[in-house]
Computed example of a mutant assay.
Amino acid sequence: MREFVVAALSFPTALFTFLLLVVVGYWLFVAFGLSDVDALDGVDGAGAETLDGLGLGGVPISVALSLVISLSWFGCLVGTVLLSGSGFPGVAVAALSVLVLVVAVLVALVLTRLVVVPLRGLFDDRLAPTRSDFVGLLCVVRTGRVDLGFGQAEVTAADGSSAIVQVRQAGTEPLRAGSTAVIHDYDPEGEFFWVAPVDLDFPIN
């Protein structure tokens, strides 16, 4: 146990020991519902771009950083323990410790990329827009009419993707191809959206 503590507090492992404690604390907050997985997203745009450049994008920043820190700490710990029993002189151990740091970080990045790839699909599904996200958005009628039994319209989601959806209206005001309407409700049984004509000269609250 003493050897483990000494290794954890020695260079280069010590560089990641504090960060690992932060990671453990963060995920404890997530487990108890005091934070969420996406809490760090958007905090630092440059950091997010850096992770994307390293091939670690597509998952929350917290997940990618936690993996890199944990794997780097473990790699440094193993290297430090091996060096402590190698019998090399102090100068050689110091030089090799720097090499252990570099190798541990590089290996951690590679392993994290391998882990991130299958996780991307999971988080893409979680972030995908749902039908309820269309409620409150404007749409453009694509059929000759919209009434209680017929109609289609094109709606653009917040992420820029567009879709052709089934729409209905309870009113009698004509809605023809090219008309603009606002989606105000979704009928899950009929799988269509309720729309109403909208005058773009007036703001929608």
Score class of each variant (00 low, 15 high):
A7N: 02
A7I: 07
T172N: 04
L71E: 00
V105L: 04
P12I: 03
G57N: 01
G45K: 10
F29M: 13
E191G: 05
C139F: 05
A48Q: 15
G25E: 02
D185H: 14
V195M: 14
I183V: 15
V155H: 01
V98D: 06
G149I: 08
D124P: 07
S84L: 03
L175S: 00
A153M: 13
A46M: 08
V140L: 13
F4V: 09
V195E: 11
G85K: 09
G121D: 06
T180Q: 15
D199V: 00
R142F: 03
T156D: 01
A170M: 11
F202G: 08
S35A: 15
V6Q: 12
D133C: 01
A108I: 03
D52H: 06
S70T: 10
G25N: 07
S84K: 08
F32I: 11
G151K: 12
V165W: 03
C139Y: 08
D41E: 14
A14Q: 00
A196L: 11
L82E: 04
V146R: 02
Q166R: 15
R176E: 07
R2K: 15
D124S: 08
V167E: 03
H184V: 15
V5M: 11
E191Y: 04
F32G: 07
L67R: 02
A31C: 10
V140C: 14
A92W: 15
V30Y: 03
E49P: 06
P118E: 06
E191D: 14
I204N: 13
V6C: 04
Y186E: 12
V37H: 00
A158N: 01
L34Y: 05
E49L: 11
R142T: 15
G121L: 08
G47H: 01
R113W: 09
V59E: 00
P203Q: 13
V59C: 06
T143S: 14
L122Q: 04
L56Q: 05
